[in-house]
């Protein structure tokens, strides 16, 4: 066995026999301690990958191995103990009538004793900064707050891997910012792997690895930095690069040396500073 936590081996998937393939012969690995971003235009198959990863869907061809288990009807419940998932729509994953009940749901399903449940609910709500909302009803929360509760629900079952399937897509900028803060802080707290499925370019910059999907196939598997150097190719498959990467490219054309494609403003300013001080 390899030492990767998730492995896709020649996976193909379609929703029905008369339907087109959503994924075609997809193979990749996710090693321990990594934040992996999966990007691609709408319909590129990226959300399907997320659902395959914890057995919400099964591939027609190939196999998927998570935490040493080949995903099938028998193993899914064990797989789901180590994989937590946050979906796109904040409303449609909130099961409980209050915040507390919602976080409890996953714990109840796993038969966790009540005393431990109460402790874990408190801890995970604290981790996402939602402690004071413990008795709130979902319709009194904003979208961003509901997604924080969804993350708390996942944290409560202490998984090894959290998949965020476009979890910020329906949020306003403030909600999006809060979620990214939360993710960054929990990632530092625990030994946890992250897979984010997104098309937010600035979100990709944080990842250790990016898997780019195009029409059901893996188009690239690379680092954000290397990816942002490929503006033209990305545009061809309906994606783009962030503003700083574009600006850096223009500087290079003007003859200013930029040694590595910047991921954020600071990195670009630093490069300019080096250039400036050498002059």
């Amino acid at each position: 066995m390899s030492n990767s936590f998730v492995e896709f081996r020649n996976v193909s998937f379609r929703y029905g026999d008369d339907q087109p393939w959503v994924l075609k012969n997809v193979s990749f690995q996710i090693q321990s301690d990594k934040w992996v971003a999966i990007i691609g235009h709408n319909g590129s198959g990226k959300s399907t990958i997320a659902k395959l990863m914890n057995g919400l869907l099964f591939p027609q061809e190939g196999e998927i191995i998570v935490n040493g288990l080949i995903i099938n009807e028998e193993t899914i419940w064990d797989v789901r103990k180590s994989v937590g998932m946050v979906f796109q729509n904040p409303d449609n994953q909130f099961v409980g009538t209050t915040v507390k009940d919602d976080v409890a749901f996953g714990l109840e399903n796993r038969g966790i004793p009540r005393e431990i449940m109460i402790r874990r609910i408190d801890e995970s709500l604290k981790a996402v900064g939602m402690s004071e909302y413990i008795n709130h009803e979902p319709h009194r929360l904003s979208g961003g707050q509901k997604q924080r509760v969804a993350i708390a629900s996942v944290l409560a079952i202490s998984p090894n891997l959290i998949i965020l399937d476009e979890a910020t897509a329906m949020l306003d900028p403030k909600g999006r910012f809060d979620i990214l803060q939360v993710i960054n802080s929990v990632r530092n707290q625990e030994r946890l792997m992250l897979v984010t499925i997104t098309h937010d370019l600035n979100e990709i910059g944080y990842a250790d690895k990016v898997i780019v999907m195009n029409n059901g196939s893996v188009w690239a598997e690379t680092t954000p930095r290397a990816l942002f150097a490929k503006e033209k190719d990305l545009k061809q498959i309906g994606l783009d690069i962030p503003f700083v990467a574009k600006l850096a490219k223009e500087f290079i054309e003007l003859g200013i040396p930029i040694n590595k494609t910047p991921l954020n403003h600071d990195e670009l300013l630093e490069e300019l500073w080096i250039y400036h001080s050498k002059m």
């Binding site: 235009h41 709408n42 897509a169 329906m170 098309h199 370019l201 309906g238 994606l239 783009d240």
Partner: peptide, 8 residues
């Protein structure tokens, strides 16, 4: 444009 990909 909510929910569309960047090109969309």
């Amino acid at each position: 444009t909510a929910g569309l990909d960047p090109r969309g």
